[in-house]
Amino acid sequence: MTTTVRTSSLLAISDLTVRFRLPDATVHAVTGIDVTVAPGELLAVVGESGCGKSVLAHALLGLLPANAAVTGTALLHGDGAPIDLLTADDKILARSVRGRRIGLVPQSPATALTPVRTGRRLLEETLRAHGRPRAEADTVAAGVGLTPADLDLYPHELSGGMAQRLATALALAPDPPLLLADEPTSGLDRPLVDATLDVLRQRCDNGAAVILITHDLAAAQRVADSVAVMYASRIVEHRPAAGFFAGPRHPYAHALLDALPDRAFAPIPGHPPMLTALPAGCAFAPRCPHAADDCGIQPGLHPDVACHHPIGDRP
């Protein structure tokens, strides 16, 4: 965050870059990400499918496939020395970071839940593994809107929305200071979307931090403190949510907001570039109405928008 002064940070990501080596090409999945997340902050990472936002989440959890090359640092602060999530030993990540210090709300909860145990068993096991009394299961479940009766069902007996809430409850059970939510609302209808988002918001209000990865701008607008827009593997704009939604400065962010049905409902012409063949300069330039000669040079994120001609600077 560059526009507000943070006294402490929970997660400091610096120059995070992820490449996938393919037999005939290199996928530039994530490029030069610098982001800091403070306790109590809800950061929404928005962008269209294939822009790299999910890879970012997987990199932070150390869950990338074998052909991925990761560079940069992602320091997770807490009690004691900070841990670099990108270089830490996988055993340490598995034992003391994933689940315990970083919770994950997965994209498709139906496949993430063990089918042979009831929600209660799953939740109680998670609570016990993290040294909390099993009796708290009902309280944790109630926090996400599940009744004690719902907990006694098996995953296949749950509707999509209930499965999502159970997955959220499991992620919350260890009370992690940082929660990663990867498209937690996909496939849910609006009341369930709002309920899930409110649970995330409440986490932040109680001092935890949440990174919400979503393509749903309305969801981001509802709960986010700050918004990072990703386009073609880079963050192109990163600002406090209120200012962003009132007046986006990057032409892509502006066009994306203008595409919302309650705004202009206007599509963006053209296609995003392939992550295997990114242009040398600004990746949005070929689709951008404000593009000029200098857009052939990659703009840096200065201070909060990566554009040579940000909206609001022109007469």
Partner: peptide
Amino acid sequence: MAELTLRRS
């Protein structure tokens, strides 16, 4: 700067 690769079994 560290480069790491993760292997699946």
